[in-house]
Amino acid sequence: MSDTLKSKSARHSADQESSRRAEATGRKNRIEAAKALGERMIEKEIARCRRGMGEDAWSLYGDWVTENIVCAAKIWLARELKEGRL
């Protein structure tokens, strides 16, 4: 292989590696942003439910409600990420 072809091949490989790293970083940033969004949404929904239920009901059912909120948030976030909306 000539030196020119070797040089072009090396540059192409480096460009591909750089693109892969940028894509992985972008994906990681999207996931971190989605997690932060999910945490904020969960906190707001828990507070809303707690206010609506009152402390007596919350003391009985708060754990169950929280589990359902978290589960629903995970499903929604996964779907939104998969479909490219986040």
Rank of each mutant, 00 (worst) to 15 (best):
S2Y: 03
L5D: 11
L5M: 13
S7M: 09
K8G: 01
S9Q: 11
A10G: 00
R11F: 02
H12M: 10
H12N: 08
A14H: 05
S18I: 01
S19R: 15
R20F: 04
E23Q: 14
A24V: 02
A24C: 01
K28R: 14
R30A: 06
A33R: 15
A34K: 04
A34C: 12
K35L: 11
A36G: 07
L37P: 00
G38H: 08
E39L: 15
E39S: 11
E39G: 04
R40M: 09
M41A: 11
I42C: 08
E43T: 05
I46E: 09
A47R: 08
R48W: 03
R50G: 02
R51S: 13
G52N: 11
G52L: 03
G54S: 04
E55C: 00
D56L: 05
D56H: 07
D56P: 00
G62H: 08
D63P: 03
W64G: 06
T66V: 06
N68I: 03
I69N: 05
C71K: 13
A73S: 13
A73R: 08
A73Y: 01
K74W: 08
I75S: 11
I75T: 12
I75E: 11
W76Q: 10
R79N: 07
E80F: 02
E80H: 02
K82T: 10
E83Y: 04
G84K: 07
G84V: 11
R85V: 09
